[in-house]
Design a protein around this nucleic acid. Structure first.
Length: 589
RNA sequence: GGCCCGGUAGUUCAGUUGGUUAGAACGCCAGCCUGUCACGCUGGAGGUCGCGGGUUCAAGUCCCGUCCGGGUCGCCA
C-alpha cells in the first residue's frame, strides 16, 4: 500500500514508480481493448492507461467507469513515447498504467460536464454549485482568494495588528443600508440586525485600548444586487488608534502592494495618485474613475453661454453645466442611427433629456446642431476639445450632477465598446476631500456621505453648523480600475463634534441617545483619536482574477433576487418556529 | 419600483411570413474499435418549446399576464 499522490504532481521524476491515485473520472476514451481515462483531483489531471497486457481485470472495470465516478487506482508511472506526448497537459509526457482500480463512488449522469461548465447557464451552475466548483478555473479562483487573504493577514500581523472578532447579532441603527433583521425569541417583538459592517464595534475597540485591529469580516446589506454587489460580502476591516490620514493611506498602499506582488507578481507604484472628489467628478463624472483611458469630460459651459442652441445656452446660464467627451478618431464607428438610437437611449437612462453630438470632418463641425455655433464659438470649442478630423463629440447639458452622470457613463460604455481599455493595467488611486454631507431632497435633510462618525477635516469644523455642504470629510476612498475597493476616514473622537454631527443630520438629542447612546457615552471616557478603512475583499479578488462578476469569486453566491439556488434559501419556516418568535405572516392580496 | 436582454432535448443553440411529424452539435444508452487525448465509426433513446390565458382554421413563432435568470436606474452611510 503506497501513499496517495496528486495526479497533477506527477512528472518524469516518477517514471518507474508504483503510485496510488484517487480522484474523479474527468474524461474517458474507450478504444475497446484499450481505455484511456483522464483522472482529475485537486492537483490536476493525469492520463490513466488500461491495457489488457497489464491487467485485464482493471480494463474490465474501466469499461464500466463513467464521468465523475470516484476511483482509486494503483499503477506504474511510465514515460510516454515521443509521438504520444500531449503538450496540452502538464503531465502530458507521462501516464499511469493501471494494475488495479476500485470504484469508490458512482455518479449519475451529471447535468453538465465539468469541462464544459464554463458555457453553461449561470442558474444551472448555481443550482449545482458543487459541480461548477470542480472546474479548474474555479479552483484557481478560490486558491487565489485564499492567497489574498493570507497575504493580507501576514502583512497586518507583521504590523502588529490583532485579528479580533465582533458580533454578528447586533443592533439595528438608522442611516445607511437596509438591515437584515433577526427576530429575538426571548424578547418578543424585538430584533437583532446583522452588521452592515463592524463600524461601531471597531471604534469601540479603539476605545477599549486595542490600538491596531483588523478582521476579515462578513457584512450584510439588504439592498438590491448588482454584478459587483452581494447581500453578504466580505470586508478587510482595519482600525487604528492615533493615526493620521497619511498613516492609514500608507498602510493600505503597502498592504495592496504586498498583495499584488505576492499573488500576481505585479509591482505597483506607491504612493497612489490622489484626486479630490471634486476633480474626479469634473474630469470623469464619477467618484470612482477608471483612469486606464482618457476621454475625459471637457467643460464648455463658458463657450456656449451665448450660443443660439437653447439646449446649451439654457443650462449654461442657469447654474447648470455643458460638457463633452471627445471620442477621438472614431466618428465613423457610430452612425447617426447609433447615436440617436442606442446612445441616446443609454443617456436618457441616466437622466439626460437627449444626446447632442457633432462630428468633425474636413476641419469643420458637422451634424444637426453644428449650425447653431458662430465661427468664434466653433473655433473655441474645437480648441478646447482638441478636436480633429474623425472625432465624435458627445455633449451633456443639464444640472452638473446629470451631466457628470451621463457623460461618465457614456465614457465607460464607449471605451468598453471600442476596446480602449488596457486590461493589463492596475490603476489604483485615492479619492480624497469628500463632502461630509449632502442634502437629501426626499428626506429634506442632510445625510452623511460616508457615515455619521466621519470627522470633518480640522479646518472645516467651524462650518459644520453654519454651512454643512461646504465641509470636507477627513475621508478617503481607494479606487482600482473604476471600482471602489474601499474607503475609510478619521473618525470623530470628540463628544461635542459628534453631538454637532447628529444635530446636522437632523437627530434630536433624544433620538441620538436612543440610537447611539452607547457611542456618545463611550466618547466621554477618554476615547482616543482613531481611524481606519474597510476594503471589499470580493471586489479585490474579482479584479485580481479578471472576473467581471462578484458571484464568480464567492463560493455560494445569491442570485439577483437574493436567493440561493442550491440551498433554496430563503424558505418558509414552520408555524411552531414562527410562534416561538411571536411572528405572524400577513399574506398580501 | 422602472427600463433592457434571455428562457426550445441532460447541455449549448437553430427554428423563415403563424402552416405537415420541432432540428443540430455535445452528452446519454447499445455495438464495434490497442495509442487515444475534443478518439473514431454505426445505431438508438431523449421535448409540458418556463407557466397561465388570449387571437387564429392553425401558435415555439403574435398579444396580455406571470415566474425564473442576467444587466442597469433608483437603492447601496
Amino acid at each position: 500500500m503506497g501513499k496517495r499522490i496528486g495526479a497533477g504532481t506527477l512528472t518524469k521524476e516518477h517514471v518507474g514508480k508504483e503510485v496510488v491515485l484517487k480522484g474523479w473520472v474527468h474524461r474517458r476514451r474507450d478504444l475497446g481493448e484499450l481505455i484511456f481515462i483522464d483522472l482529475r483531483d485537486q492537483s490536476g489531471i493525469v492520463q490513466l492507461v488500461f491495457n489488457p497486457d497489464y491487467s485485464r481485470e482493471a480494463l474490465e472495470i474501466a469499461d464500466k467507469l463513467r464521468s465523475e465516478f470516484v476511483i482509486e487506482v494503483h499503477g506504474k508511472v511510465i514515460e510516454r513515447d515521443p509521438e504520444t506526448v500531449n503538450p496540452n497537459l502538464k503531465t502530458g509526457d507521462i501516464e499511469v498504467t493501471v494494475s488495479e482500480v476500485n470504484i469508490l463512488n458512482r455518479s449519475k449522469p451529471i447535468p453538465f460536464l465539468i469541462h464544459e461548465a464554463e458555457d453553461v447557464s449561470e442558474d444551472l451552475r448555481l443550482k449545482y454549485r458543487y459541480l461548477d466548483l470542480r472546474r479548474e478555473d474555479m479552483q484557481n479562483t478560490f486558491k487565489k482568494r485564499h492567497q489574498i487573504t493570507q497575504s493580507v493577514r501576514n502583512f497586518l500581523n507583521e504590523q502588529n495588528f490583532l485579528e479580533l472578532e465582533t458580533p454578528i447579532l447586533t443592533k439595528s441603527t438608522p442611516e445607511g443600508a437596509r438591515d437584515y433583521l433577526v427576530p429575538s425569541r426571548i424578547h418578543e417583538g424585538e430584533f437583532y440586525a446583522l452588521p452592515q459592517s463592524p463600524q461601531l464595534f471597531k471604534q469601540l475597540l479603539m476605545m477599549s485600548g486595542f490600538e491596531k485591529y483588523y478582521q476579515i469580516a462578513r457584512c450584510f446589506r439588504d439592498e438590491d444586487l448588482r454584478a459587483d454587489r452581494q447581500p453578504e460580502f466580505t470586508q478587510i476591516d482595519i482600525e487604528m488608534a492615533f493615526p493620521t490620514r497619511e498613516d492609514i493611506m500608507e498602510l493600505t498602499e503597502n498592504m495592496l502592494k504586498r498583495v499584488m506582488k505576492e499573488v500576481l507578481d505585479v509591482e505597483i507604484e506607491t504612493p497612489f495618485p490622489r484626486m479630490t472628489y471634486h476633480e474626479a467628478m469634473e474630469r470623469y463624472g464619477t467618484d470612482k474613475p477608471d483612469t486606464r483611458f482618457g476621454m475625459e469630460l471637457i467643460d464648455i459651459t463658458d463657450i456656449v453661454k451665448d450660443c443660439d442652441f437653447k439646449v446649451f445656452s439654457g443650462p449654461a446660464n442657469s447654474g447648470g453645466k455643458v460638457a463633452l467627451i471627445n471620442v477621438e478618431g472614431n466618428a465613423d464607428k457610430f452612425t447617426r442611427n447609433d447615436i440617436d438610437g442606442e446612445l441616446t437611449n443609454f443617456a436618457k437612462g441616466y437622466g439626460a433629456k437627449g444626446l447632442a453630438w457633432i462630428k468633425v470632418t474636413d476641419g469643420k463641425l458637422t451634424g444637426p446642431i453644428a449650425k447653431f455655433f458662430t465661427e468664434e464659438e466653433t473655433k473655441a470649442l474645437m480648441e478646447r476639445a482638441n478636436a480633429t478630423d474623425g472625432d465624435l463629440l458627445l455633449f451633456g447639458a443639464d444640472k452638473a450632477e446629470v451631466v457628470h452622470q451621463v457623460l461618465g457613463a457614456l465614457r465607460l460604455k464607449i471605451a468598453k465598446q471600442l476596446e480602449l481599455i488596457d486590461e493589463t493595467k492596475f490603476n489604483f488611486l485615492w479619492i480624497i476631500d469628500w463632502p461630509l454631507v449632502e442634502y437629501d431632497e426626499d428626506e429634506k435633510r442632510y445625510v452623511a456621505l460616508h457615515h455619521p462618525f466621519t470627522s470633518p477635516v480640522p479646518e472645516d469644523i467651524e462650518k459644520l453648523t453654519t454651512d454643512p455642504l461646504s465641509v470636507r470629510a477627513n475621508a478617503y476612498d481607494v479606487v482600482l480600475n473604476g471600482y471602489e475597493l474601499g474607503g475609510g476616514s478619521i473618525r470623530i473622537h470628540d463628544y461635542e463634534v459628534q453631538k454637532k454631527m447628529f444635530e446636522v443630520l437632523g437627530f434630536t438629542e433624544e433620538e441620538a441617545h436612543e440610537q447611539f447612546g452607547f457611542l456618545i457615552e463611550a466618547l466621554q471616557y477618554g476615547a482616543p483619536p482613531h481611524g481606519g478603512i474597510a476594503l471589499g475583499l470580493d471586489r479585490i479578488v474579482m479584479l485580481l482574477t479578471g472576473k467581471e462578476n462578484i458571484r464568480d469569486v464567492i463560493l455560494f453566491p445569491k442570485t439577483q433576487t437574493a436567493t440561493d439556488l442550491l440551498m433554496q434559501a430563503p424558505s418558509r419556516v414552520s408555524e411552531k418556529q414562527l410562534d416561538e418568535l411571536s411572528i405572524k405572516i400577513v399574506e398580501e392580496e
